[in-house]
Every structure is written in structure tokens, then in C-alpha cells.
Design a protein around this nucleic acid. Structure first.
Length: 933
DNA sequence: GATATCACG
DNA sequence: GACGTACGTGATATCT
């Protein structure tokens, strides 16, 4: 390359690591320090340096960093960058590692007091172009776009591999690079706190500069401007605009800290690099060095493993056989024996435990026995509530429950003894009812969920895990208690059998813990386990115990109201159909509609039966088929009656008079909670008639129900994670996001375009297809495709977010949320394109839905303490519905409670993370849930 | 136990 | 270029 033109690559290191930090999972290095951004940075440098000797690759290279806090800009304007939040806590330790990484590549790392990285870059650009070199700036900072010159200087955004030249600048700003500074001066920059002119954003700024040529001319021509508000702002803030122009002007005449020729790139000496990669534990990169110097190949970020596994296993770790000897378990019926087990557990420092009860619902269940395990095959069962199996025999010999609990309490609350449970929420509530607060604890079900969500081993139940991880079959509950009519409760199970069953549960739980615990660190899920999900066990346990009051009489009257209407509707449907049939049977209904009445419609589904779902019925109704409407109404009312008004009454706990749902902590693969028996996360709200059900959820006398929900949280997170400036700015300005999208996509905002934009926004979150979108919007598929294309064009970050997420998922078999939660997608590499496409859509959605779940979980974990601190211990958090929390608040304390709740929810990401988008929370209250919205 | 439908975010 | 008609849940009724 002796006579080739030198090509200098200038890497904007500071801006890169911020973006890498937000875009990459929160990985840790071999020392357990956060290293996600460092990893991303290392992979990027590798890729760049690998371009040596390739067409348009670097011959010279340097990394530019910000050295000092204060520069000449602060002398001009003391508020410069004053609003900038401190970096996230787990990014701070990564800054120094950036220098270490750069040195490991033997690439110069340049910083200079009093100059920002942007200025140093400008100086080098000027010097290099004067010498006839080509320059590529590796950054996506819009300030640096001022430096672009066709054929001489371009920019490279390595996150999405995009080259930025004059054309791209024109596209973004509507003006060439030489005028970018004027546009920036008018629009200002909230991140750097460059004031700009109020009311002027990118659109107006660009238009003014296009019209008048430069900033000074704009400011001198205010009398030509017709819009009164704009004119006034330009006059009033002319000085701010001039100051802004100076703030965004890059210094390009400072002396170069290192001469140009010293930046030459001759190749990367392998030894220092190897040493660095080994120290960090970046195994996949290390393998490439070992393969022989700078090699080629993709540098997609892969999971950083601590010491053991080399790459993220696409399949779960293999099962390891265990030997279970149930005959070794002991039935404890004397104080002496109990004390022996307690001493053993205390000396051990940990103990696995399980409770047996007479009912699956922990709020009403009574304790029957407790099992403990201190080592494999070393388990015992302590019966406390067994009764005789029939009227003829006596109850088995056992200690009084009160005595046993009094002895167990110190152990269960001993801060030096870790209590290990499987789905410990259940056991925690059982003991909480006896005034025992089990702590500290681990939960093997939650661990399994955090490690293997979506991994295709089914659920995370003890029996399933024993099978998948240990090739062991647990005694089925059915075998002990029977099924159907003959089923008995556990208190009637003979002690010998009970001991084998219960002892096994504790024994297996302990073995699972021994296998799962070390994987948390090595597979980088410690953070989400410790900071989110483990704490949630007791948070949710407390909520389940509280329950929510339901007005039974009101539900009963709704029920009969619905019944009357249902009967009336049935009469009309039968009349139209020419005879009675089972409306609830889709088969019969289909045959009535399409065969007997001869309506036109399609077959659907493998079974070859007619589809009669809402879409079909609404289509028929639209064609004037009256009976379709009646069936729809009938469906709605029977659904409401059977699922809600009737079922809910039956769910009221006779002891508390309240409904206690059970939240599953490991039910939803994305990290959401799910609610069962009853499901309180799908109480109607979308239709007026359905909303009446919400009015049945009431507050105790002297209390109000207060609802607090995150506004548009998933779209906000999409804006954050995909790093879409327009969306982030719109949220920061509390604009209506669907209107803003409508403006961008269709050029105008009215009811129709806003509605379409809303659909498009959701489509994006769910992993879009042009067919699907077209179907939803009722437009031809070409138009659907065109809208998607326009969306990607207007919000380019979305495209790269999707590409990056899918590439990551394909490489690693899982995705991660901002807090590191993993969701696995075994089908992401499926041969069946249908399965694969499904996995891809789910993989695009999971980080967003999952991050939203992480956030509200963090808020929930902090809520009780925050309320207590504010003197609001009377406020009780009752329900969670994905982005909503429902509270019971003493009359008169609503305002105070709202303030605390809002604060905790809005700051849920902190201090681990500082989001660019605000998390707005809408709060309302009233006598019932319906009124609280 | 599978399938269809529909309630929610 | 084919693929398919949005992501995540749980409850109920009907029919096999």
C-alpha cells in the first residue's frame, strides 16, 4: 500500500460506549465487573482494525476520548451540559477499561484537557485532509456531521454499519454539512443543554436555514417571517441562538496531541490483546486470536461467560443422574429429633424446606407438615396437622403445631441460615400467617425461570425440573392423594407415605439449588435474579395475602341482569335460525349460518370447520346479517356471566371476604407475571358493559381504590432501546406519540391517520409483517409494506434494533432485557420457516415486554418501604396488571399516596439505569376499580 | 385433552 | 423468494 492514499479512522470512543452500554446486555467479565459496553467496544475495534489492507479500510487509526469535564464552552455558557445526568452506576467502572482495551489493540488513545472529543476529531480531520488523506469518523454524533466532505470525510455508524456522507446529511438535516452548525444552533440540544430557540425543532430549523442560507441571515430577516410566535421567539432568543452557534462550532485549529504519522496501523500484536481478552474472559474473541492474529468473520456480540462454558449453550445443560433414597428420610415426632435437625441446619448455613397443606390456595390452606433437607438424601418430615384417614383410627402421633412453629421460627428467621424453597412464595405465605418471616431465602423455581425461560423444558415446577435436570421421577401428588372423587387432602395421608413424598420435595429442591446457584453467575443472570425476581417472592406474597374486596351482591344482580338479556337474545337467534341449537357450539353455529342460512363464508382451520370468531361475525354483521349481531351480543354476555360475575362470586374467600389471586412468577416467558384462580389481569375494561365488572372491585369502608399505570411504557422502551431520537424527543416533550407518528408517516394528523399510526406503532412492537399490518388496517398489502418502509425510513433506529436483536438471538439463542433478563428462542433456528418467523417476532417483542416487566417489578419491590417511609403504611398495594398497580388508600391520603407511587414507578430504572425517556404515570382513584380509572 | 373463543396488557 | 395474517397471558364451553 506504499502509494495508496492514507485513510485515517477516528473512533469517537466516548459516544460509542454510551450507546454500546444501552444497546448491549448487562454482561459481566471474569471478575464479575460490569463489562457489556467494554465487550461491545472491543468487538467493534476488532472489526475496524480487521479492515486493514482491505478496500476503504484504515491505514491509520486513533481512538479519541473526552478527557476533561470543563472546556471553553463552559466559559461561554455555564449551563453547558449542566442537565446531563450522571452515567449509569454500572457504566462508570467501564470507562477506564476502555483505555485498557484500546491499549491492548496497540492503537493510540488520544485525549486532551480542555478539548472535547469532538474538537480533537475536528483538528485531526482538518490536518489529515490538508495532507491529502481520507478520513472516516466512527461515530453517529450529529455534531460531527459538520465535518463531512464528499470524497474526503465520511462517518461510519458501526452499530448498524451505516456510512454517512453528504447525501445522508442532506436527508437528515435538509442542508449540507457546512450548514449543519446553523441548523443545530436553532434547534438546540437538550442532552448537551444547548439552548437553541424555543419552539424550533429539527423541522423548522432546517426549513429556515434552507430558506435564508445561514443563521445570521435568519436572525436578520425576522420581519419577513409570518408566523407570529416563531417571529417573536427568533427576536427574543437571537442571542441564545448566536451562543448556540458558538457552542456547536468545533475547534479545529488546536495543536495535534500526536503527529498524524504516529497513528499508522501496521497490524495488531497478538500478545497484549490475548492477555486482555483472557483477563476479561471474552472467550469467543480469544478463540479468534488463538486462531492466528486478526482473523475475519462477523463480530456479533455474544454472551460473555465467566469461567466455565465457552459460548451460550443453545440447549440446556445436560441432565445429571442422581440417586434418591427415600427410605433414608426421617419422620420427626419428638422435640429431641426436631432440635437435632434445627442444629444441623444451623451448622450447615442452609436448609431446603417445603410445606404440606390441605389446600392448593395458600391463603386459606392450613399447615399439615414441614419437610427439611440439609444434604442429598438427608431429609425429614415434621407432621403437625395430620388427621386419621377414617373414622375408626386415631390421628397419628405428632407434636403440637404451636410447639413446632415456636422451635422453627428462630431457624426460619436466622439471618445466618439460607432457606431454600421451590416456589417459596407459597411457603412464605404459609409461615407469614403464623407470624414467621422466612429470611433470607433462595427460590429454585425463580432461579430456573431466570436461567432457562423459554428453553423448552416446559414449566419450572419441581417435578419437571427433576426430570429435565436429574433424570429423576418424583412421586406424583396423585399417587399420594388420588384424583377426582376419591381424592383426599394431604392431612389424611399416612405418615410413612407423607414422609417419602414431602422429604423428596425438600431433597430435590436442595439438589436443584446446588446445580442452579452456580449457573446464575456463569450465565450472567445474577443481576436480574437478585435485583428483580428474588425480592418479588415476598412482595407478591404480601399482595396475595391482602386480596381485594369484591361486592358479591352487586355481582349477583349483574348476573341476573345478564341472564335476562341472554334469554331474550337466544329467542331471537332461534327465530332467525328457524329452530333452537347450541349457540355456544362453534360447530353448530357454523352449520346454522353457512349451511342452513346459506350465507357466504370460508372454511378455516385444520378441522375443516367454519370459523365463527368475531372477525367473521362482524363481517357478516357488516353485510346486514342481523343474527350475527345477536350472536355477538350473546357471546359477550355469556362470557361476562360465566367467566366473571358467576366465577368471581365463587372465588371470594369466606374468611377474609376478599378475592386472593395467585400470581405466577414463572408463567410468562418474557418475565411478566401471570394471574390465576381467578385471573385478575383480564377483568373487562374495553367495552362499556364489560366495564361494569370493574365496579364490583371495591375498597373497604374508609378507603379508596387508587390505580396507577405507566403510560405507553412499551413504546417508550422501544424508543429508548432502539435509540430513535424523534420518538425520544416526543416522549420527553410529552407529546401525543401516535399523532407524532401520524405526522411522520402520513404528513397529517386526523382521527383516521392517528388511528392507523397507533396500529403501526403496536405492529412494530410485535414484530411486524406487511401482510399482518395490511390486514389490520384493511388496506392492500403493498400499502402495508409501503407504510413499514416509511416507518423504517423515518425512524431508522427501529430497523437496526430489529436487525441487531435478531442477529443476537440467532447467535445466542436468547434475547435480553435492559436488566439482563433472558428469554430463550429454541425455534429461532428452526427449519420450519413458519416456526422460525414466529420465534423472530417473539424475539423482537421479548426485550421490550420484558423490560417493561422488569421495571414494574422493581417499582413493586420498593413500594411498601417507600410508602412506609412516607408515613403511609395504611396504603396497601393489591394488584398488578402488567403496567398498572392497584392500591387501597385510606380516605384523605390519596394525594400523598399518589405522589409516592408516582415517584417510585417513574424512577423504577434507577439507579441501575438512567433512561432518556420519562416514565409517565397516570393516577386516579375512586370507590371502586372502575371509578379509579 | 384438544380446540375455539375471548377477556386483559 | 417463501413463509404467514402481531407479542404475551388464563378461563370457559364444547366436543372428542
Amino acid at each position: 500500500m506504499s502509494d495508496a492514499q492514507p485513510h485515517l479512522y477516528l473512533v469517537d470512543g466516548s459516544s460509542y460506549i454510551f450507546r454500546a452500554y444501552h444497546r448491549l446486555p448487562p454482561l459481566t467479565n471474569r471478575h464479575g465487573q460490569p463489562a457489556g459496553a467494554v465487550y461491545g467496544y472491543t468487538a467493534m475495534l476488532w472489526k475496524l482494525a480487521d479492515g486493514l489492507n482491505k478496500a476503504d479500510g484504515p491505514t491509520h487509526m486513533a481512538v479519541i476520548l473526552d478527557a476533561s469535564e470543563s472546556t471553553h464552552r463552559n466559559e461561554m455558557y455555564d449551563q453547558y451540559k449542566a442537565n446531563r445526568p450522571p452515567p449509569p452506576e454500572d457504566l462508570i467502572p467501564q470507562f477506564p477499561l476502555i483505555r485498557v482495551a484500546t491499549r491492548a489493540f496497540s492503537i493510540p488513545c488520544i485525549e486532551q484537557n480542555g478539548l472535547e472529543a469532538d474538537d480533537i476529531i475536528a483538528c485531526y480531520v482538518l490536518a489529515a485532509t490538508k495532507a491529502g488523506w481520507k478520513v472516516t469518523i466512527v461515530s453517529s454524533d450529529k455534531d460531527l456531521m459538520q465535518l463531512i466532505e464528499d470524497g474526503k470525510v465520511d462517518m461510519l455508524d458501526t452499530m448498524n454499519d451505516r456510512r454517512i456522507g453528504r447525501e445522508q446529511v442532506l436527508e437528515k438535516f435538509g442542508v449540507g454539512p457546512e450548514k449543519v452548525g446553523d441548523v443545530l444552533a436553532l434547534m438546540g440540544d437538550s442532552v448537551d443543554n444547548v439552548p437553541g430557540v424555543p419552539g424550533i425543532g429539527p423541522k423548522t430549523a432546517s426549513q429556515l436555514i434552507q430558506q435564508y442560507g445561514d443563521l445570521d441571515t435568519v436572525l436578520a430577516s425576522t420581519d419577513e417571517i409570518t408566523k407570529p410566535k416563531l417571529k417573536q421567539n427568533l427576536i427574543e432568543h437571537a442571542d441564545a441562538a448566536r451562543l448556540s452557534r458558538e457552542l456547536v462550532r468545533l475547534v479545529c485549529d488546536a495543536p495535534l496531541p500526536e503527529p498524524l504519522d504516529d497513528l499508522v496501523l501496521t497490524g495488531i500484536p497478538p500478545e497484549p490483546l490475548k492477555e486482555f481478552l483472557e483477563d476479561q474472559g471474552f472467550k469467543s474473541l480469544l478463540n479468534r486470536v488463538a486462531g492466528g492474529g486478526a482473523s475475519s468473520g462477523g463480530t456479533r456480540p455474544v454472551d460473555v461467560m465467566a469461567s466455565k462454558p465457552v459460548a451460550a449453550a443453545p440447549t440446556p445443560p445436560e441432565a445429571q443422574d442422581i440417586n434418591v433414597d427415600r427410605s433414608a428420610y426421617e419422620t420427626v415426632t419428638t422435640m429431641e429429633a426436631l432440635d437435632r435437625w434445627i442444629a444441623e441446619a444451623t451448622a450447615n448455613g442452609f436448609v431446603a424446606l417445603d410445606t404440606e397443606t390441605d389446600c392448593i390456595d395458600c391463603v386459606i390452606a392450613r399447615l399439615v407438615g414441614v419437610s427439611l433437607a440439609t444434604a442429598p438424601n438427608k431429609a425429614c418430615y415434621i407432621p403437625v396437622g395430620h388427621v386419621s384417614a377414617d373414622l375408626l383410627s386415631d390421628a397419628p402421633s405428632q407434636m403440637p403445631m404451636a410447639d413446632v412453629l415456636a422451635r422453627l421460627k428462630p431457624l426460619l428467621e436466622d439471618p445466618a441460615v439460607l432457606k431454600i424453597g421451590h416456589n417459596l412464595k407459597y411457603d412464605w405465605v404459609m409461615f407469614a400467617k403464623q407470624d414467621i418471616n422466612v429470611a433470607p431465602y433462595d427460590d429454585t423455581m425463580v432461579m430456573s425461570f431466570d436461567l432457562d425461560a423459554g428453553r423448552g423444558i416446559g414449566g419450572h415446577g419441581l417435578d419437571e425440573l427433576a426430570r429435565a435436570m436429574c433424570n429423576h421421577e418424583c412421586i406424583p401428588f396423585k399417587q399420594v392423594c388420588g384424583t377426582g372423587q376419591k381424592a383426599i387432602t394431604f392431612d389424611k395421608v399416612p405418615l410413612a407415605q407423607a414422609t417419602e413424598y414431602a422429604g423428596e420435595d425438600a431433597d430435590i429442591c436442595l439438589r436443584l439449588w446446588q446445580r442452579l446457584k452456580p449457573r446464575l453467575a456463569s450465565e450472567n443472570v445474577t443481576r436480574v435474579y437478585e435485583m428483580v425476581d428474588r425480592q418479588l417472592v415476598t412482595t407478591v406474597g404480601r399482595m396475595e395475602r391482602r386480596g381485594i374486596k369484591v361486592d358479591r351482591d352487586y355481582l349477583a344482580s349483574l348476573s341476573s341482569e345478564f341472564s335476562k338479556e341472554i334469554t331474550a337474545l337466544e329467542g331471537r337467534v332461534y327465530e332467525a335460525a328457524g329452530g333452537p341449537f347450541t349457540i355456544g357450539s362453534p360447530q353448530q353455529l357454523g352449520s346454522v349460518l353457512y349451511d342452513r342460512l346459506g350465507l357466504k363464508g370460508g372454511r378455516k382451520g385444520k378441522s375443516g370447520t367454519y370459523s365463527t370468531d368475531v372477525n367473521e361475525l362482524e363481517r357478516l354483521a357488516g353485510e346486514g346479517v342481523e343474527v350475527a349481531n345477536r350472536v355477538l351480543e350473546w357471546r359477550q354476555l355469556t362470557k361476562l356471566r360465566s367467566t366473571y360475575t358467576d366465577a368471581l362470586q365463587a372465588q371470594i374467600n369466606p374468611e377474609t371476604g376478599r378475592v386472593h389471586t395467585s400470581y405466577s412468577l414463572s408463567g410468562a416467558q418474557t418475565g411478566r407475571l401471570s394471574s390465576t384462580e381467578p385471573n385478575l389481569q383480564n377483568i373487562p375494561i374495553r367495552t362499556e358493559i364489560g366495564r361494569k365488572i370493574r365496579d364490583a372491585f371495591v375498597a373497604e369502608p374508609g378507603y379508596q381504590l387508587m390505580s396507577a399505570d405507566y403510560s405507553q411504557i412499551e413504546l417508550r422502551l422501544a424508543a429508548q432501546m432502539a435509540d430513535v431520537p424523534q420518538l425520544k424527543e416526543a416522549f420527553a416533550a410529552h407529546e401525543d406519540i401516535h399523532s407524532m407518528t401520524a405526522e411522520e408517516l402520513f404528513g397529517s394528523v386526523d382521527r383516521d391517520t392517528r388511528g392507523k399510526a397507533k396500529t403501526v406503532n403496536f405492529a412494530i412492537l410485535y414484530g411486524i409483517s406487511s401482510w399482518g399490518l395490511a390486514g389490520r388496517l384493511g388496506v392492500p398489502k403493498e400499502e402495508g409494506a409501503a407504510i413499514i418502509a416509511r416507518y423504517f425510513e423515518r425512524f431508522p433506529g427501529i430497523r437496526s434494533y430489529m436487525d441487531d436483536t435478531l442477529a443476537f438471538a440467532r447467535t445466542n439463542g436468547f434475547t435480553r432485557t435492559l436488566f439482563g433478563r433472558k428469554t430463550h428462542f429454541p425455534n429461532i433456528r428452526a427449519g420450519n420457516p413458519n416456526h422460525r418467523a414466529g420465534a423472530e417476532r417473539a424475539a423482537i417483542n421479548a426485550p421490550i415486554q420484558g423490560t417493561s416487566a422488569d421495571l414494574i417489578k422493581r417499582a413493586m419491590n420498593r413500594m411498601d418501604e417507600a410508602l412506609e417511609k412516607a408515613g403511609l403504611e395504611g396504603v396497601r398495594m393489591l394488584l398488578q396488571v402488567h403496567d398498572e398497580l392497584l392500591f387501597e388508600v385510606p380516605d384523605g391520603r390519596e394525594q400523598e399516596a399518589a405522589a409516592v407511587v408516582r415517584e417510585v414507578m417513574a424512577k423504577a430504572a434507577e439507579p441501575a439505569m438512567k433512561l432518556d425517556v420519562p416514565l409517565d404515570v397516570e393516577v386516579g382513584w375512586g370507590a371502586n376499580w372502575g371509578a379509579a380509572h
